[in-house]
Amino acid sequence: MKVFDDRRKLHREILRHWMLYIMLVPCVVWFIIFAYVPMTGLLLAFKEFHFTKGILESPWVGFKYFENFFNYFERDILIRNTLVIGFFKTVVAFPFPVVFALMLNEVRSSGFKKLTQTVSYLPHFISWAVVAALLMRLLAPDTGLINQVKGIWGLDKSTFYLMEEKYFYSIMFFSHLWKTIGWDSIIYLAAISGINPELYEAAIIDGAKKLKQVWHITIPSIKFTMGIILIMSIGNIIKTGFEQVYLLRTPGNMRVADILDTYVIRVGIQQGEYGYATAIGLLTGLVALFMVIFTNKVCKKYFEVYIW
């Protein structure tokens, strides 16, 4: 290694790009102030917070909160449920907005296309509380729409979907999909709109069928966008978010629906234990970090898509 040479080169590069550094200065400063400074709050995972002493001077308690969590009798169930639900919502759900964007792209009437697109993203604006209330009506035993339809066909209409474990993941997954598919597809629509039309024209001249065009032009063109979104969302496998699950939980499906986030809400914050909630947040953050680094490596190696 020619160390000197490298260093000289490095200095030259830095000087050459001084404008780019200027562009980055506000960004770095902002992230230090608004993201890293408040992270001192993570210390509370190891401290007992005192109002008067503040975060820095509150007394240390070591790994007490972590021990509490690892001694919690339902720990394994919580982790398992979190990972399963997170997997459904991030990995399984991942291709759907892409497919939707591709399908929307093939709609011929431009008016209908615009209408579909506008309508499809509306559910993003309804809160989970309202969605859950509608779902409960839809899925109610005997009186719910689904059971009524089953009744017309002469089937048993007493199924209590929300009280049975086996239906929970599908209910959760499809309601998630319904609420997010349109919104999440916007980014792919934008990516598709950036594809050079000449590529398609050339393909048509070559006699390529629609499916082939999609496979050989569209998908490779939005590969980067897809990859980046996958990498960024992979951490959500463990950070699932609590609202939807919390609202669809019943005693009947609790065993598969209780996740870390609902647990933190129930135990951590409600009992005034900031430390406990922070400790679990720190743990999930670390796991998420590991997952993202791993995914980033894999994607970099095999698909040349990467964040860093």
Binding site: N68, Y72, T250, P251, G252, R266, Q271
Partner: peptide, 19 residues
């Protein structure tokens, strides 16, 4: 911290048993 969540879980266990 250990006991309260378990006591609170009584109603859930009860409903689970009912169904």
């Amino acid at each position: 911290m250990t006991l309260k969540p378990v006591i609170d879980a009584f109603d859930d266990a009860f409903v689970k048993a009912v169904f």
